[in-house]
Amino acid sequence: MALSEKELRDALRNRWFIVFTIAFAGLALALSALMQPGGSQFQVASYSRTTASLINLVLLFVPLIGLTLGAANLAGDRETGALAYLLAQPVTRVEVLLGKYLGMASALLATLTLGFGLAGLALALQGGINDAGGYLLTVVLAYLLALAMLSFGFLMSVLAQKTAAALGGALFLWLLLVFLGDLGIMGTAVITQMPIGSVFLIAAINPLQMFKIASILTIQANLEVLGPAGLYASNQFGNALLPLLLAGLLLWIVVPLLSALVLFARQEKLTLKGSLK
């Protein structure tokens, strides 16, 4: 708990994190304001458009901040020697990693809450929220995505000896998940004439796509907007699709975090600088 509180406090002092928080909250607020046409007949459409815009905002920002904050955390402490000193105290490696993870997760979720809260408040004040439950579900999905990205970031941090390497890995993964993954699947599907079901399944392995598809399901009943792959998913999985996607996102939180815990618990090679040699 002491470590979680320290990490939360550190994150709130971190300039990079503050910039992210302000940018995310500002953009979320701006989107909710811009999408309001004023007439009550457009309120349903504007709510959907605002949520859709927030989904895109989350897809771009949250993986970046989750991955980089996670990646810089342990690797940074290892590089300075602070980790070696910390591990010489009466704490276990599992406690250290979990404590750090919980602290960073709290900071990240606080930022998302602020952004979504401001946007939701703006929508509510203008009478634009017609489905508070759906909006809250989108927020929960964003939380899950943030935690999944943080888990990946921590895994990078455990694997890399240097902060620069961990951050490099995190940025590469961000590019892969946000841009290259989609392009790669589209290209492969065209060249190999892959069946639509396979295209959907491969795309849906990506946690960002899981978040996107699940979020779309919160604002409309089907996935027509995603084209044939979306229609395939709607037909194939029906009402089970949303729970499946939620379970998938949970797996993306748990698997990398557990991997990081197991690897970290087995690691002996501490950074030598300034402490245990």
Binding site: K6, D10, G81, A82, Y85, Q89, P90, T92, G274, S275
Partner: peptide
């Protein structure tokens, strides 16, 4: 019981690296 053993030990390294506090 590494953790329990460390409760019985106060450790001072050559140069302790503290957090920014």
């Amino acid at each position: 019981q590494g953790k329990a053993a460390r409760t019985a030990i106060g450790y001072v390294p050559q140069e302790a690296i503290f957090y920014d506090m």
